[in-house]
Design a protein around this nucleic acid. Structure first.
Length: 688
DNA sequence: AATTGCTAAGTTTTT
DNA sequence: CTTAGCAATT
């Protein structure tokens, strides 16, 4: 029996309001995940068949966590579906991301839209590749357009929404429309879809094949959406399509924590929910279980400066705690040293471990000075985010090979690996082949197989092409065969395949520094070792590889998570800290131009910057320290800077300047421990 | 075909 | 100061 008395009245209301539309306005630290999981468990307990429940999240991590907690609350729930290939007879609730839900639907029905079922999913790097090609063919006039900017424009345009409507600049609109036509046909020709397509194509499927929509509605009778403030217009459409009939929609979110507007998130989805669901019941959660009242009051005061928001005020029963400390530094090195000093003082006086601390910053670049200082002091840390494992060259090459083997039409991947390792297919040769493919309106791979085309190539190039085609054909054939003809272990197969084509050696050779070469080989081997686990046991080797690829493109936080971190300080951007909490938080670089970022000012997104600061503030449980520099090294030279205007929005009585802090008396034991630790550090040679 | 050198730019980044 | 992308060399 589910014990609802463990919840506060508001939470209980949220858990027990099961019919009709509900908006749970869940402020930071108010037990949001708890409410969602209790709600699901409650539904099940009341006899709702679990397979009628759909819970949509934005990250796989969130989906996993939710699944785990539902299981704990409702032990009878066994098979809980997360992966898109879950068996049809499953009996659990569906807890997954928007994207994996759509993949699941599309894998079943995409042929109705004229795609092949073995479509590949392009990630951002591949999307950029397509955009670059289009831009290159478009502007021989030498005008340089930033592919990233075009991609983001395109994404907004395709997803529709108010932003796109406000995309009134006729030049931008024309460019977007122009690029869109080429982009979509390029992807289609490659039998590829991108992240946006997963949602958009599902919507199209619903429009053109109402029976599919009907089946989904019948199946998902209770729908919940987490982090609702981060949904974009297309995602809203999807949710609306599923729920506008039965109206059992529960959305959970916090408009004050909307920080992904630049990625197309429509905070209006949350603010204007009544427009589509006038009967919506709004349940605010305001009791915070995380932070001291000092921290919450500061956060409340800050966010009040935002014009358009649903009013709410966080409170807690955790007492005032200590004041917020504000530091001023001459430059970022001093800042980093002070961070280290604060952490070490707390640790050596026995008040906190390294892992109780997080240092938050606006831009990834700010981590450098911090890392240097922490390393110098021998403090363990881990850096969250940064460039992804999946952006490394060797990983991209590997994935491109897999994609080509499963779907040779994938031009982008094919062009990436056609001459890796070098097999005599020079840039010039490839250009001719691409031209031929455009002429014939067919995939590059079809051209490679076409003797009418290859006959015009040089002897060497033709030999290269033939060898390449033979390699792909033969390997693809082998992968379609079940064991014993086909490979039983994907890892063993991959290891052998990449050795045979000389990829490992090529990787080593390509690096001047043998150390980094070995590192790349090791990275790849690590990934290869996970093949069998991630792919699951069912189907042909090709089916299994397909699942692996899907898992890897849709779930990039997978590997980061299971890395055991031990006792270490967390260095993290303000964006990626959402949803986390730490006893002690240090927010650095609170300078005008960095925290309200200079570009945000130009773009008129000051409110979002303020929300970002709000998210950062509300991560702290016990102590909060804020720092800014009076000068910072910018592009090489020291430039003066001013404190962030947001600092003025925090009530002065909650803040004390670091230099005014009363010196805390140090007890003899603490003093001894401190010196002992210092001596040890000197002995091991770690201290400066 | 690959390496070198130049120029230009420089947020955040769930899928 | 970096770094990425691109052009122009060897």
């Amino acid at each position: 029996m589910l014990d609802l008395s463990a919840l506060n009245p508001r939470q209980r209301e949220a858990v027990t309001t099961l019919r009709g539309p509900v908006l749970i306005l869940a402020g930071a630290g108010t037990g949001k995940t708890r409410v969602i999981t209790y709600r699901i468990a409650h539904l099940i307990e009341l006899g709702v068949p679990p397979e009628h429940i759909l819970g949509v999240t934005f990250t796989n991590k969130a989906a996993r966590e939710m699944l785990e907690r539902v299981r704990r609350l409702a032990p009878r729930v066994r098979a809980v579906a997360r992966r898109s290939d879950a068996p049809a007879g499953e009996s659990g609730p569906t807890l997954c991301t928007f994207h994996s839900l759509c993949v699941r639907i599309l894998r079943r029905h995409i042929e109705a839209l004229g795609y092949k079922r073995n479509f590949v999913i392009y990630d951002e790097a591949e999307q950029l590749g397509v955009i670059r090609k289009i831009l290159a063919s478009l502007s021989a006039r030498g005008e340089k357009t930033d592919p990233r900017a075009v991609l983001s424009l395109l994404s907004r345009y395709r997803n529709g929404g108010e932003r796109a409507a406000a995309l009134a600049d006729p030049g931008a609109r024309a460019l977007a429309e122009h690029v869109r036509a080429r982009y979509e046909s390029a992807l289609r020709a490659c039998n590829a879809v991108d992240f946006d397509d997963l949602i958009l194509l599902t919507l199209r499927l619903f429009r053109e094949h109402p029976d599919v929509l009907e089946a989904c509605r019948a199946r998902y009778r209770y729908v919940m959406v987490d982090e609702y403030q981060d949904t974009n217009a297309a995602q809203f459409e999807l949710v609306h399509a599923l729920t506008r009939e039965h109206r059992n929609l529960c959305v959970v979110g916090d408009d004050d924590q909307s920080i992904y507007g630049w990625r197309g998130a429509e905070i209006a989805n949350l603010l204007d929910l009544e427009r589509h669901f006038p009967e919506v019941r709004i349940i605010p959660l305001e009791q915070n279980y995380r932070s001291t009242t000092t921290i919450l009051e500061a956060a409340n005061a800050l966010i009040r400066h935002n014009a358009r928001r649903r009013p709410k005020r966080l409170w807690s029963e955790l007492g005032a705690g200590s004041k917020i400390t504000l530091f001023t530094f001459p430059d970022e090195e001093a800042e980093a040293r002070a961070v280290v000093e604060e952490i070490e003082t707390a640790r050596l006086s026995g008040r906190a471990r390294w892992s109780d601390h997080a240092v938050l910053f606006r831009t990834n670049g700010q981590s450098r000075a911090l890392e240097t200082a922490l390393r110098r002091a021998g403090v363990r840390y881990h850096l969250v985010g940064g460039q992804s494992f999946f952006d490394r060259r060797e990983v991209r090459d590997f994935l491109a090979y897999l994609k080509v083997l499963l779907n040779p039409q994938d031009d982008i991947s094919l062009l990436r690996i056609a001459n890796v390792p070098a097999r005599g297919l020079s840039e010039a040769t490839m250009q001719r082949l691409i031209a031929a493919s455009q002429e014939r309106q067919c995939a590059v791979y079809a051209v490679l197989k076409n003797p009418l085309v290859t006959v015009s190539l040089s002897e060497r190039a033709r030999a290269g092409v033939e060898a390449f085609v033979e390699l792909i054909e033969q390997t693809a054939r082998a992968l379609r065969a079940r064991p014993p003809e086909g490979p039983a272990s994907l890892s063993a197969w991959a290891e052998q395949f990449f050795t045979r084509i000389g990829y490992f050696d090529d990787l080593r050779r390509s690096e001047k520094n043998p150390e980094t070469g070995e590192n790349r080989v090791r990275n790849l081997r690590e990934l290869i070792a996970t093949l069998d686990d991630a792919a699951g046991p069912d189907g042909t080797p090709a089916d299994r590889l397909e699942r692996f690829l899907e898992e890897v493109t849709l779930d990039t936080d997978r590997e980061a998570e299971d890395t055991p971190k031990g006792d270490a300080v967390t260095l993290i951007t303000m964006h990626s800290c959402k949803g986390l909490e730490f006893p002690h938080v240090f927010i650095v670089g609170l300078e005008e131009g960095l925290l309200p970022h200079s570009r945000a000012k130009q773009e008129g997104t000051l409110d979002e910057e303020r929300r970002l600061f709000y998210v950062a503030l509300t991560r702290a449980r016990l102590s909060l320290k804020l720092g800014y520099c009076t000068a910072r090294r910018k592009y090489g030279q020291l430039t003066p800077c001013h404190p962030s205007s947001f600092l003025k929005e925090l009530p002065a009585e909650l803040i004390e300047r670091a230099e005014d802090r009363p010196r805390q008396p140090v007890s003899p034991e603490v003093g001894r421990a401190w010196f002992a630790a210092l001596r040890e550090k000197l002995a091991t040679g770690k201290a400066p």
